[in-house]
Protein backbone atom coordinates (compact mmCIF):
# COMPACT_ATOMS: atom_id res chain seq x y z
CA UNK A 1 0.00 0.00 0.00
CA UNK A 2 1.27 3.43 -0.95
CA UNK A 3 -0.04 6.44 0.93
CA UNK A 4 0.30 10.06 -0.09
CA UNK A 5 -0.32 12.30 2.92
CA UNK A 6 -0.74 15.98 2.11
CA UNK A 7 2.06 15.84 -0.46
CA UNK A 8 3.13 19.03 -2.24
CA UNK A 9 5.89 19.79 -4.69
CA UNK A 10 7.04 23.26 -5.61
CA UNK A 11 10.03 23.24 -7.96
CA UNK A 12 12.94 25.65 -7.56
CA UNK A 13 11.56 27.89 -10.30
CA UNK A 14 8.32 28.31 -8.33
CA UNK A 15 6.20 25.92 -10.39
CA UNK A 16 3.66 24.20 -8.21
CA UNK A 17 3.48 20.69 -9.65
CA UNK A 18 1.51 19.01 -6.87
CA UNK A 19 -0.66 20.63 -4.22
CA UNK A 20 -1.69 18.92 -0.96
CA UNK A 21 -2.24 15.51 -2.53
CA UNK A 22 -3.68 12.80 -0.29
CA UNK A 23 -4.51 9.35 -1.57
CA UNK A 24 -4.19 5.68 -0.75
CA UNK A 25 -3.01 3.37 -3.52
CA UNK A 26 -4.17 -0.11 -2.51
CA UNK A 27 -1.79 -3.08 -2.73
CA UNK A 28 -2.05 -5.49 -5.66
CA UNK A 29 -4.18 -2.99 -7.57
CA UNK A 30 -3.44 -0.77 -10.54
CA UNK A 31 -3.79 2.95 -9.92
CA UNK A 32 -3.60 5.15 -13.01
CA UNK A 33 -2.77 8.84 -12.81
CA UNK A 34 -4.23 10.51 -15.84
CA UNK A 35 -4.10 14.14 -16.85
CA UNK A 36 -2.72 16.44 -19.49
CA UNK A 37 0.84 17.77 -19.35
CA UNK A 38 1.45 20.01 -16.34
CA UNK A 39 -0.97 18.00 -14.21
CA UNK A 40 1.85 16.73 -12.00
CA UNK A 41 1.16 13.07 -12.76
CA UNK A 42 4.77 12.20 -13.55
CA UNK A 43 5.98 14.19 -10.55
CA UNK A 44 3.65 12.17 -8.32
CA UNK A 45 5.02 8.94 -9.77
CA UNK A 46 8.63 10.00 -9.38
CA UNK A 47 8.09 10.94 -5.77
CA UNK A 48 7.33 7.28 -5.02
CA UNK A 49 10.90 6.21 -5.81
CA UNK A 50 12.41 9.53 -4.70
CA UNK A 51 13.52 10.65 -8.14
CA UNK A 52 11.74 13.78 -6.89
CA UNK A 53 11.48 14.67 -3.20
CA UNK A 54 8.27 16.37 -2.01
CA UNK A 55 8.48 19.86 -0.53
CA UNK A 56 5.62 19.08 1.83
CA UNK A 57 3.80 16.08 3.28
CA UNK A 58 5.00 12.49 3.27
CA UNK A 59 4.72 9.26 1.36
CA UNK A 60 4.48 5.87 3.03
CA UNK A 61 5.03 2.47 1.45
CA UNK A 62 3.55 -0.27 3.64
CA UNK A 63 3.59 2.16 6.53
CA UNK A 64 7.24 3.14 6.08
CA UNK A 65 8.05 6.82 5.47
CA UNK A 66 10.20 6.70 2.35
CA UNK A 67 11.95 9.98 3.23
CA UNK A 68 13.87 7.95 5.82
CA UNK A 69 14.99 5.33 3.30
CA UNK A 70 18.13 5.45 1.20
CA UNK A 71 16.94 6.48 -2.29
CA UNK A 72 19.20 4.02 -4.14
CA UNK A 73 18.03 1.06 -2.04
CA UNK A 74 14.44 2.20 -2.36
CA UNK A 75 14.69 2.34 -6.16
CA UNK A 76 16.08 -1.19 -6.35
CA UNK A 77 12.99 -2.37 -4.49
CA UNK A 78 10.64 -0.71 -6.96
CA UNK A 79 10.23 -1.68 -10.61
CA UNK A 80 10.32 1.23 -13.03
CA UNK A 81 9.22 1.28 -16.66
CA UNK A 82 9.82 4.43 -18.67
CA UNK A 83 8.63 5.84 -21.93
CA UNK A 84 10.81 4.52 -24.78
CA UNK A 85 11.85 1.79 -22.31
CA UNK A 86 14.97 3.64 -21.04
CA UNK A 87 17.14 0.61 -21.73
CA UNK A 88 20.92 0.86 -21.50
CA UNK A 89 22.09 0.95 -25.13
CA UNK A 90 25.42 -0.71 -24.34
CA UNK A 91 23.94 -3.75 -22.65
CA UNK A 92 22.40 -6.78 -24.29
CA UNK A 93 18.78 -7.63 -23.64
CA UNK A 94 19.61 -10.19 -20.92
CA UNK A 95 22.01 -7.83 -19.21
CA UNK A 96 19.45 -5.03 -19.30
CA UNK A 97 16.92 -7.30 -17.66
CA UNK A 98 19.49 -8.49 -15.12
CA UNK A 99 20.43 -4.91 -14.15
CA UNK A 100 18.79 -4.66 -10.75
CA UNK A 101 19.62 -8.19 -9.52
CA UNK A 102 23.24 -7.50 -10.56
CA UNK A 103 23.20 -4.23 -8.59
CA UNK A 104 21.88 -6.20 -5.65
CA UNK A 105 24.88 -8.52 -5.88
CA UNK A 106 23.32 -11.58 -7.54
CA UNK A 107 26.07 -13.50 -9.40
CA UNK A 108 26.11 -12.81 -13.14
CA UNK A 109 25.30 -16.34 -14.36
CA UNK A 110 22.36 -16.65 -12.01
CA UNK A 111 21.02 -13.19 -12.87
CA UNK A 112 21.27 -13.94 -16.60
CA UNK A 113 19.51 -17.28 -16.25
CA UNK A 114 16.65 -15.58 -14.43
CA UNK A 115 16.59 -12.83 -17.06
CA UNK A 116 16.21 -15.41 -19.84
CA UNK A 117 13.19 -16.87 -18.07
CA UNK A 118 11.64 -13.42 -17.80
CA UNK A 119 11.85 -13.05 -21.58
CA UNK A 120 9.13 -15.68 -21.83
CA UNK A 121 7.06 -14.00 -19.13
CA UNK A 122 6.86 -10.79 -21.15
CA UNK A 123 6.27 -12.66 -24.41
CA UNK A 124 9.67 -12.38 -26.06
CA UNK A 125 11.63 -15.12 -27.78
CA UNK A 126 14.82 -16.24 -26.14
CA UNK A 127 16.68 -15.68 -29.40
CA UNK A 128 16.55 -11.96 -28.64
CA UNK A 129 18.61 -12.38 -25.48
CA UNK A 130 21.96 -11.37 -26.91
CA UNK A 131 20.73 -8.47 -29.02
CA UNK A 132 21.32 -4.84 -28.18
CA UNK A 133 18.34 -2.52 -27.67
CA UNK A 134 18.85 -0.78 -31.03
CA UNK A 135 18.24 -4.13 -32.71
CA UNK A 136 14.74 -4.40 -31.27
CA UNK A 137 11.46 -2.86 -32.35
CA UNK A 138 9.82 -0.28 -30.10
CA UNK A 139 7.33 -2.82 -28.80
CA UNK A 140 10.06 -5.36 -28.05
CA UNK A 141 12.10 -2.71 -26.22
CA UNK A 142 9.09 -1.88 -24.12
CA UNK A 143 8.65 -5.56 -23.19
CA UNK A 144 12.30 -5.72 -22.18
CA UNK A 145 11.66 -2.61 -20.06
CA UNK A 146 8.84 -4.43 -18.29
CA UNK A 147 11.00 -7.52 -17.81
CA UNK A 148 13.75 -5.39 -16.29
CA UNK A 149 11.27 -3.82 -13.89
CA UNK A 150 10.09 -7.29 -12.81
CA UNK A 151 13.56 -8.83 -12.48
CA UNK A 152 14.05 -8.11 -8.78
CA UNK A 153 10.46 -9.22 -8.08
CA UNK A 154 9.37 -5.88 -6.60
CA UNK A 155 6.00 -5.36 -4.94
CA UNK A 156 5.59 -1.98 -6.56
CA UNK A 157 5.78 -1.24 -10.26
CA UNK A 158 5.95 2.35 -11.51
CA UNK A 159 5.10 2.91 -15.16
CA UNK A 160 5.70 6.35 -16.65
CA UNK A 161 3.77 6.58 -19.93
CA UNK A 162 5.38 3.30 -20.93
CA UNK A 163 3.39 2.77 -24.10
CA UNK A 164 3.40 6.36 -25.32
CA UNK A 165 6.06 5.88 -27.97
CA UNK A 166 4.76 2.80 -29.79
CA UNK A 167 2.20 2.60 -32.56
CA UNK A 168 -1.49 2.01 -31.69
CA UNK A 169 -1.56 -1.67 -32.65
CA UNK A 170 1.48 -2.52 -30.57
CA UNK A 171 0.17 -0.36 -27.76
CA UNK A 172 -3.11 -2.30 -27.63
CA UNK A 173 -1.09 -5.53 -27.56
CA UNK A 174 1.11 -4.29 -24.72
CA UNK A 175 -1.92 -3.12 -22.74
CA UNK A 176 -3.51 -6.56 -23.00
CA UNK A 177 -0.22 -8.16 -21.98
CA UNK A 178 0.05 -5.90 -18.97
CA UNK A 179 -3.45 -6.85 -17.85
CA UNK A 180 -2.54 -10.53 -18.25
CA UNK A 181 0.70 -10.07 -16.29
CA UNK A 182 -1.12 -8.20 -13.57
CA UNK A 183 -3.67 -11.00 -13.21
CA UNK A 184 -0.77 -13.42 -12.74
CA UNK A 185 1.51 -11.28 -10.59
CA UNK A 186 -0.76 -8.95 -8.62
CA UNK A 187 1.73 -6.12 -8.22
CA UNK A 188 0.91 -2.70 -6.84
CA UNK A 189 1.07 -0.80 -10.11
CA UNK A 190 1.17 2.98 -10.46
CA UNK A 191 0.70 3.95 -14.07
CA UNK A 192 0.90 7.39 -15.63
CA UNK A 193 -0.76 8.27 -18.92
CA UNK A 194 -2.51 11.10 -20.70
CA UNK A 195 -4.77 8.65 -22.51
CA UNK A 196 -8.07 8.22 -20.68
CA UNK A 197 -8.96 5.06 -22.62
CA UNK A 198 -5.69 3.49 -21.54
CA UNK A 199 -6.53 4.49 -17.97
CA UNK A 200 -9.99 2.87 -18.13
CA UNK A 201 -8.52 -0.24 -19.70
CA UNK A 202 -5.83 -0.84 -17.08
CA UNK A 203 -7.01 0.78 -13.87
CA UNK A 204 -8.64 -0.52 -10.75
CA UNK A 205 -8.47 3.06 -9.52
CA UNK A 206 -8.32 6.10 -11.79
CA UNK A 207 -7.03 9.45 -10.55
CA UNK A 208 -7.89 12.33 -12.85
CA UNK A 209 -5.61 15.31 -12.30
CA UNK A 210 -5.96 18.96 -13.21
CA UNK A 211 -3.16 21.44 -13.74
CA UNK A 212 -0.96 21.82 -10.66
CA UNK A 213 -1.57 18.34 -9.33
CA UNK A 214 -5.13 19.01 -8.15
CA UNK A 215 -7.32 15.93 -8.00
CA UNK A 216 -10.45 16.26 -10.11
CA UNK A 217 -11.82 12.81 -9.32
CA UNK A 218 -10.75 9.47 -7.91
CA UNK A 219 -12.69 6.32 -8.57
CA UNK A 220 -13.09 3.11 -10.51
CA UNK A 221 -13.57 3.51 -14.27
CA UNK A 222 -17.24 2.65 -13.70
CA UNK A 223 -17.71 5.36 -11.10
CA UNK A 224 -16.02 7.99 -13.21
CA UNK A 225 -18.02 7.10 -16.30
CA UNK A 226 -21.33 7.00 -14.49
CA UNK A 227 -20.82 10.03 -12.27
CA UNK A 228 -18.22 12.49 -13.56
CA UNK A 229 -17.54 14.71 -10.55
CA UNK A 230 -17.33 17.96 -12.48
CA UNK A 231 -17.36 19.48 -15.94
CA UNK A 232 -13.60 19.06 -16.22
CA UNK A 233 -13.91 15.31 -15.79
CA UNK A 234 -16.83 15.07 -18.15
CA UNK A 235 -14.90 16.90 -20.81
CA UNK A 236 -11.71 14.96 -20.11
CA UNK A 237 -13.35 11.58 -20.56
CA UNK A 238 -15.24 12.85 -23.59
CA UNK A 239 -18.67 12.53 -21.98
CA UNK A 240 -19.70 16.05 -22.87
CA UNK A 241 -18.90 15.41 -26.50
CA UNK A 242 -21.22 12.42 -26.51
CA UNK A 243 -18.45 9.88 -26.88
CA UNK A 244 -19.41 8.01 -23.73
CA UNK A 245 -23.12 7.86 -24.37
CA UNK A 246 -23.91 4.79 -26.35
CA UNK A 247 -27.10 3.87 -28.09
CA UNK A 248 -28.39 0.71 -29.63
CA UNK A 249 -29.25 0.91 -33.27
CA UNK A 250 -31.16 -1.90 -34.78
CA UNK A 251 -30.27 -2.51 -38.39
CA UNK A 252 -33.02 -4.01 -40.37
CA UNK A 253 -32.48 -6.33 -43.30
CA UNK A 254 -28.83 -6.61 -42.47
CA UNK A 255 -28.97 -9.90 -40.64
CA UNK A 256 -30.75 -8.31 -37.69
CA UNK A 257 -27.61 -6.92 -36.13
CA UNK A 258 -27.86 -4.49 -33.24
CA UNK A 259 -25.13 -1.86 -33.46
CA UNK A 260 -23.82 0.15 -30.54
CA UNK A 261 -23.25 3.77 -31.56
CA UNK A 262 -22.00 6.81 -29.67
CA UNK A 263 -23.67 10.19 -29.27
CA UNK A 264 -22.50 11.25 -32.72
CA UNK A 265 -23.96 8.13 -34.28
CA UNK A 266 -20.54 6.58 -34.91
CA UNK A 267 -20.64 2.81 -34.48
CA UNK A 268 -18.38 1.53 -31.71
CA UNK A 269 -19.40 -2.13 -31.70
CA UNK A 270 -22.00 -4.77 -32.03
CA UNK A 271 -24.34 -5.82 -29.25
CA UNK A 272 -23.38 -9.27 -28.02
CA UNK A 273 -25.98 -11.91 -28.74
CA UNK A 274 -27.31 -10.25 -31.84
CA UNK A 275 -26.62 -12.38 -34.92
CA UNK A 276 -23.41 -10.71 -36.08
CA UNK A 277 -21.49 -13.47 -37.80
CA UNK A 278 -19.63 -11.80 -40.68
CA UNK A 279 -20.32 -14.79 -42.90
CA UNK A 280 -24.04 -14.20 -42.55
CA UNK A 281 -23.78 -10.90 -44.37
CA UNK A 282 -26.23 -11.24 -47.26
CA UNK A 283 -24.11 -9.13 -49.62
Amino acid sequence: MIEFQGVSKVFDDGTRAVDDFTLVLPSHKTTVFVGSSGSGKTTLLRMINRMVDPTGGRILIDGEDIARLDPVRLRRRIGYVLQAAGLLPHRTVVDNIATVPRLNGVPRAQARAAARELLGTVGLEESLAMRYPNQLSGGQQQRVGVARALAADPNVLLMDEPFGAVDPIVRAELQQELNRLQRELGKTIVFVTHDIDEAFLLADQVVILKTGGVVAQVGTPGQILSEPAEDFVASFIGADAGKRQLYLQHRQGDGDVTLVVDGDGRPTGVLAGSPAAPGADPR
Partner: peptide
Protein backbone atom coordinates in the same frame (compact mmCIF):
# COMPACT_ATOMS: atom_id res chain seq x y z
CA UNK B 1 17.23 10.02 -20.50
CA UNK B 2 19.56 7.05 -20.28
CA UNK B 3 21.28 8.60 -17.28
CA UNK B 4 17.93 9.21 -15.63
CA UNK B 5 16.74 5.72 -16.41
CA UNK B 6 19.88 4.34 -14.78
CA UNK B 7 19.23 6.37 -11.65
CA UNK B 8 15.59 5.34 -11.60
CA UNK B 9 16.35 1.62 -11.61
CA UNK B 10 18.79 2.02 -8.72
Amino acid sequence: DTRQAATAVG
